[in-house]
Amino acid sequence: MALNEAIHQMMAEDPSVFLIGQGVKSPWYVGNTATGLLDRFGEARVIDTPVSENAVTGAAVGAAIAGMKPIVEHPRMDFMMYALDPILNEAANWLYMSGGAVNVPLVIWGIINRGGEQAAQHSQALHALFAHIPGLKVVMPSTAYDAKGLMIAAIKDKNPVLYIDDRWLYRVKGNVPKKIYSVPIGKGAVRKKGKDITVVGISYGAHQATLAYDELLKKGISAEIIDPRTVKPLDIPLILESVKKTKRLAVIDTGWKTGGIAGEIIASITEKGFQYLKQAPLRITLPDIPAPMARTLEEEYYRPLSVQSIVATIETMVRKNKK
């Protein structure tokens, strides 16, 4: 509902904002996020589309180049892979290869929609792919407040912004101001203060880390929980400040381990702050395995992201070092 409010307010404020994508007319795909938009703004600005991810995303890029501020929505980001060309060849490069002449003010909204035995093509968290590309920004909210504030910031940004959110967070409630506000892109937030270890969590990972905080305290570990909120550009200074104090770093990402954001954060902190680290940093991610189907396999696959597992992993890490 925070997202819904953000889109309502921005479409009302700026006639160049429009929503395009699969299922924007139907709660089947995007739940309540598009509620009321069609009635209020009409079919010209709330455009449901055939399954043509490449052309539809390209059309959104073209409309942005022509001066509009489109939000192109992909209810499952697995399907968005058909749109890699307009995103990373066209949108990401257009400003640079035009020597600054033509910018692309676009929001590409990809939803990670997984669990429930949906298997490998209805589950993937592919944000690291996009974070690799110069010219793209990638934001990943974990709270209702940030869901609205980052969407508004993404719409107002003059560049292509990937807004990637996790369906597992759609039921999370939080305080959301009525007014229009932005959460600055590239600025992280300290969710919990601590002194023994810095735990960086991406999106759902930040949510889980915050839940793990109390359990860790009970075990005598004071974790500082950081939510970068943006994965490109990363708020490395914020994480580095924290690591200076805690001397330890673990990163929870909801994507895979190899070539992922957790590795990127650890590399950046190691480059800049190796001397502060008391022990090797740790990645808590999904294993390098496609998402399985059967519930037994699925439970095993997502186990690293469970609060229980996060607590145990961090406890083992810290204890090993304390001995």
Binding site: F18, I20, A44, R45, I47, N54, A55, V56, T57, G58, A59, A60, V61, G62, A63, A64, I65, A66, G67, M68, P70, D85, P86, N89, E90
Partner: peptide, 16 residues
Amino acid sequence: GTVSLAVGAALSFKIK
């Protein structure tokens, strides 16, 4: 690669 961009420009004309 630019065919859909032109479609998008046309979409902007329709909206406006």
